[in-house]
Write a protein that binds this DNA or RNA. Structure first.
Lengths: 98, 98
DNA sequence: GTTGTAGGCAAGCGTTCACTTGCCTGTCAA
DNA sequence: TTGACAGGCAAGTGAACGCTTGCCTACAAC
């Protein structure tokens, strides 16, 4: 089996999924960048600490990798863990209308 | 956006993921069949009511469809909702070792 | 050094969630 | 009709989770 509970836990929260959307749109953002853009584009009023905790969960799931540079910490998305999902439950190709 | 929170909520629980594994292995099982086989193969000691509630969540997420026949209710897996995940965050092809 | 910025750590709070318990409905066989 | 079987409904409980609050560390500009 050897499944990864952290992966599904990370995907379980709507704010974390929005963060993945944000990093898909613009990869390598800092914490404050993400906070600002989430408030702008998605109307999310999440605090900095909340986003920070979300990023920690995403990093533990392997969906986000970080890169430190001075006092900045850049966050990069990595979608490869998602492959385990479609490998576990194969998706039927193009289902025709019933 | 139009994401489906129910899908990720359904995938968020380990027992529900095991149920999906079980239905992948043998599709169209009844509630009692699933209970029995989960106890046998996976050592899960979940009660009937617990499994029933899990199946309701999976059905609401569109991952499981049901078919009534007399006093039996057969459960069928449908992995097509999973497609929205890989469409939302495209997966890189075959990452080489760093 | 002092100030401002980027981020981290940890305790507390309220909600959500999985599971149990108990009882009820519907179907089939004897 | 009676009893066994397959499943459903709803309230209650304990744990996990998301978020806040408050304080602290590290780096950079003045």
């Amino acid at each position: 089996m050897a499944e990864d509970p952290d992966l599904f836990k990370a995907l379980g929260d709507a704010t974390r999924r929005t963060i993945l959307d944000e990093l898909t749109d613009r990869d390598g953002q800092t914490l404050f960048e993400i906070c600002g853009r989430l408030a702008m584009k998605h109307g999310l009023a999440s605090s900095r600490q909340a986003i920070s905790q979300h990023l920690a969960v995403l990093e533990q799931a392997g969906l986000v990798h970080t890169r430190r540079q001075g006092r900045y910490k850049f966050h990069h998305i990595d979608t490869s863990p998602l492959r385990s999902i479609v490998e576990r439950w194969p998706i039927d190709r193009e289902e025709p209308d019933p």
